[in-house]
Write a protein that binds this DNA or RNA. Structure first.
Length: 108
DNA sequence: AAGGTGACCGGCC
DNA sequence: TGGCCGGCCACCT
């Protein structure tokens, strides 16, 4: 169950997200080679909810909006986690998203 | 086995 | 300017 190839693939990328940085589902999807399946990334996140090594709060949509925030325990838990890392979040949206945006490096 | 779903993305109206 | 639609791929019932 937790050894699924695809999911593990996503987890690996998300776990690589450095502190104080965020990324988008599409970026991860591209890193996986499945750019068109950004939804799968979100799905993997849903399954990764039981994992502690997967900072899903660092993953937002391409808008820099905390779309998945509703999936966290608290109402604004995701935002607090991001702010805790020095990321400024205004109205569920990351400020200077492009600045804190981290692109997953994948060797081709 | 088939159908439905989804924490998205991009385009079109 | 904002909302709606389709596509896409893997997981779940």
């Amino acid at each position: 169950m937790e050894n699924d190839n695809f999911f593990e693939r996503v987890y690996a990328i998300v776990r690589l997200i450095p502190y104080g940085k965020v990324t988008s589902y599409g970026a991860i999807a591209k890193a996986l080679g499945t750019a068109r399946s950004a939804r799968m990334v979100g799905w993997a996140m849903n399954a990764s909810h039981h994992l502690e090594d997967v900072p899903a709060h660092r993953v937002v949509n391409r808008n820099g909006l905390l779309t998945g925030k509703l999936h966290f325990d608290g109402t604004n838990l995701m935002q607090q986690l991001l702010e805790n890392e020095g990321i400024v979040v205004i109205d569920n949206q990351i400020k200077d998203f492009e600045v804190v945006f981290w692109i997953p490096k994948v060797e081709v």
